[in-house]
Amino acid sequence: MAKYIGIRVLATIPLLFAIAVVTFLIAVAMEANGSIAGQVCGEGATIECIAEVEESLGLNDPLPSRFVSWLGDVVQGDLGVSLLDRNAGVGELIGERIWPSLSIVGLSLIIGISLGMLMGIIAAIQPGGLVDRIFSITAASVIAAPGFLIGMMLSWGIGVELGWLSPIGYTPFGESVTGWFKSLILPSIALGMPTLAIVQRQLRSSMANALQSRYVLAARARGVGRATLIGRHALPNAMIPTITVIGFRAAAAIGLTTAIEIVFGIRGMGELLVTSILNRNVTVLQGGMLVVGLVVATVNLLVDISYGFLNPKVRLNK
């Protein structure tokens, strides 16, 4: 297993490099579509100002050497400074904003995966039964609703009408742990509901397949009881395709949390990226994209590793 994990970690390096190249090229392409320096100097920019900015950003150097020096900085953790505020380091900006986002994504995945698995297993035990049908209809409707809309409904219903939780806002972890957790609940449910539905659907169908398999029949012929059949024989095999789906959903959730944060007025990565897009703040965007890419790559790595845990064929043959 250690060897397998090692190989998977090494295989992530080209992915990270590809993400870096893409991120870098985004900035290059932005220049081609309008001067960044002009943006910095504002309207009525002087030639001197533009020249100075271009010089300081190294925009006049050839692309490969720019890429190398940019990548060198990035590897050392230096993401540059915000174009709009020379005192604000991009690293610090992101460092502030990423925690709310990661907290929401993390809790949403915990909610979505655990409940989704539970509901998927329950539905698979008696496919076509009443519970299965109720779950299927619910899952189909939830998948059709964007998370931010679910968020607005929750904010209104539970926050405004019932008053159980604050309909808006975020409490940092450092301020109050319970406050932090409470402020995460609604956004995480909003983001986690589609995850739940997707996991439920996938696991239901792969569990149903596994329960029909020859090896489950053979286990029944050995006198294996129902709980063991479901939990030990069918579930690990049914989890293999489900893990893949969870991986895609986790990546999607990292993108979709932006909209959830905006619903709940949380200053996370979402707001940072959106305002930077509107302001064409290229260094912040570069840094933001890079960090999000890093998170996605980590998720993929975790998916690969859990895949190895579940599937001995994958683990032993690599």
Binding site: M30, A251, G255, L256, G293, V296
Partner: peptide, 15 residues
């Protein structure tokens, strides 16, 4: 494997 929203953002950033 990249979030679709992120790819859309990338194009919006460039254009």
């Amino acid at each position: 494997s990249l979030p679709i929203i992120l790819l859309a953002m990338a194009v919006i950033i460039i254009l």
